[in-house]
């Protein structure tokens, strides 16, 4: 990736202008034309570097105050099937297989954000029923200590 491409990624991700011609504004910052910026964005989207142009909402501010990480202990031979099944639920926003540790046997992680804790618990119970995995824990967040946007290719990059 060239230096210009790196700077463009940083601008597109962190300093996107909420203005009538945003790609022209970004281009002016980097010495590119609007057309060049748009062409690069399309290329990054085609390569999967940019997933989407979109918004990320602060879930607490839009009413989804209960944040549950549900961790599952899934037999290795069922991981693929269970991971895909859990991911297919609309209520599940994230679904990852992760490494385990001797004192932490859970290997599949799902995130559920809902307005109330009770709803998260009910959803977890429904997921458990659907995949037939009984060993799971619902870990609610009780405080946010940090939530920052990823800083790509900034001074530390």
């Amino acid at each position: 990736m060239t230096e210009t491409e790196r700077r463009l990624i940083a601008e597109l991700g962190e300093n996107f202008p909420i203005e009538p011609r945003p790609f022209a504004v970004i281009g002016a910052r980097l010495g590119l034309t609007e057309d060049q910026v748009i062409a690069l964005v399309k290329e990054f989207m085609a390569r999967g570097i940019i997933r989407r142009l979109s918004v990320a909402l602060r879930h607490q501010n839009v009413g989804f105050t209960a944040n549950a990480m549900v961790v599952w202990k899934v037999p290795p031979e069922r991981l693929e099937e269970v991971g895909k099944m859990l991911a297919s639920f609309q209520e599940v926003t994230h679904c990852y297989e992760r490494e385990t540790a001797p004192q932490w046997p859970y290997n599949l992680y799902t995130m559920v954000h809902r307005p109330h804790r009770g709803e998260c618990l009910a959803i977890a119970a429904r997921l458990s029923e659907a995949v037939g995995i009984k060993e799971y824990r619902v870990l609610f967040s009780t405080a946010e200590l940090k939530r920052s946007n990823p800083q790509y290719f900034t001074e530390r990059g």
Binding site: G13, I18, I49, R52, L53, S54, R58, P150
Partner: peptide, 23 residues
């Protein structure tokens, strides 16, 4: 702009696949 100011929008712009750029 108002929704960003009020905090409902945490971020607006490109959603990057961090793994694809080496992170």
């Amino acid at each position: 702009r108002r929704l960003k100011e009020s905090g409902a929008i945490r971020r607006l712009g490109a959603i990057i696949d961090s793994r694809k750029i080496g992170y």
